[in-house]
Nucleic acid binder design. Structure first.
Lengths: 243, 243
DNA sequence: GCTGCGATGATGGTCTGACCACAAGTCGGC
DNA sequence: GCCGACTTGTGGTCAGACCATCATCGCAGC
């Protein structure tokens, strides 16, 4: 603890203080001392333990929060984010804004991800996972007159397919890209009442391909579905100023 | 200019201060007042302009930095991140650590992304982009006795394929996932000297499929390549403690 | 005994003010 | 004319204080 007798400054080589805190937390996570839902020590306590000031601790926690690793609750503490693995979609949204990336590019990336995902799910989804997809298809046909309910089943079907790969990374990637669509989808779906049946049929085709363990058919069906969805959404984009 | 005479602003509604700053910067980005490479106003100046304290401004900038949107340089200022669109791979690495996601899952996600990307590139890569891929293939065969140089061409070939889609989102996604592999690849490649020729051949097959505009062949060749690379890397993983 | 609710302590959120470390432009000396 | 020290402005860190929120527990009322 006495340390630093010689080195007069040493402490602030680069921007150590904050990095030190992040490294500390990362270490706890990697050695499984912190698991999802766990609460971190309080900011004041962390500051003392690591030997930096509270603002430095706060800065580090804010970085981790921006990456979606932790969540802070005023008055309660800071917690490791719970639930399924998710990547922060806000960063992708801002990145698109900075570089002027159009909506179609985002949709295309989603198409690549979900087409490959559907193929994987066809190979290895368990019976329960296939049944979950089936439930959502049923829900779609039962909600042909309720766009918002229909949309909910739509989203959940895509999540069920991603879950069928048993690969949380693919799920996180898809969710990051797709979540940028959902908000706008809620508006456009109201004007697309007449196409709900077609949409449900497309999903059913994807489902059947997965059900019959046909990866190529699943890929093609998903790709076709998202191509049409992209076109439909694009035709709605004529009038800008939405955001 | 004059604006906002009425609205008292209700300063601290919830945890506004920081969110207010982020919204301010986001607004500047979305209306193209800030472009890549541009310098933001100084922290002290932003604080005065927005009407919050400097710590709040710092907290907001740190969030944006964690998302890779801005970069701060001590003594110089804060800048909108330049260069090709990139997502912060650190967040994915930490997410994997928190949820105990294995290496094979990351590799699989990469496979889905790059297989679809290769197919897209076969459809629409320009002549220059195809030529860039060819250059890297040539570089690989010229570096069969220099693993580190070989690896460099390997990485650049994959980037060239991603660039061939003209879709920066796919490039950013792939880079985020793949960058988690590169570090370990640098070590394993030394022990894989004998397999460099096979690796080069596999890449050549991918290239030829793209060159001949055959999306399906490109997808299969890339998928096969990454499957083998995954298996090779996995066999090296027997001895843990690398990190 | 049980229930409901106010008091209490701990936690994160914000602010002020100050000082340090670094980068870059400026002006002086050579 | 060139180069180095200095000035200025920037982000980085710290200390201390206060406010807002939350979780808990004890007490009063039922």
């Amino acid at each position: 603890m006495t340390g630093r007798l010689a080195a007069p400054q040493a402490a602030a080589r680069d921007s150590v203080a904050v990095e030190q805190v992040i490294a500390h937390v990362r270490g706890l996570i990697e050695r499984r001392a912190l698991r999802p839902g766990d609460r971190l020590a309080s900011e004041r306590r962390l500051a003392v333990e690591i030997g930096v000031s509270r603002p430095s601790v706060r800065a580090a926690l804010r970085s981790l929060a921006a990456m979606g690793i932790v969540q802070t609750r005023h008055g309660a503490g800071t917690f490791i984010t719970e639930g399924p693995p998710l990547l922060v979609s806000e960063s992708l949204g801002l990145l698109a804004a900075v570089h002027g990336i159009g909506f179609d590019r985002l949709f295309e990336a989603r198409r690549v991800l979900e087409a490959g995902t559907a193929a994987l799910a066809a190979e290895r989804a368990t019976g329960d996972q296939v049944a979950a997809m089936s439930d959502e298809i049923t829900g779609m046909y039962a909600s042909l007159d309720d766009p918002q309910a229909f949309l909910l089943h739509d989203v959940r079907f895509h999540r069920a397919v991603a879950a069928g790969t048993n690969n949380p990374v693919l799920g996180a990637l898809i969710e990051m890209v797709a979540s940028l669509h959902y908000e706008q989808r809620r508006e456009t779906v109201e004007r697309a009442r007449g196409q709900l049946r077609d949409t449900a049929d497309m999903h059913r085709r994807i489902y059947q391909a997965i059900r019959t363990r046909d990866p190529e058919a699943a890929r093609l069906a998903m790709d076709d579905h998202l191509r049409r969805a992209q076109a439909a959404q694009a035709s709605e984009e004529d009038r800008p100023g939405a955001r």
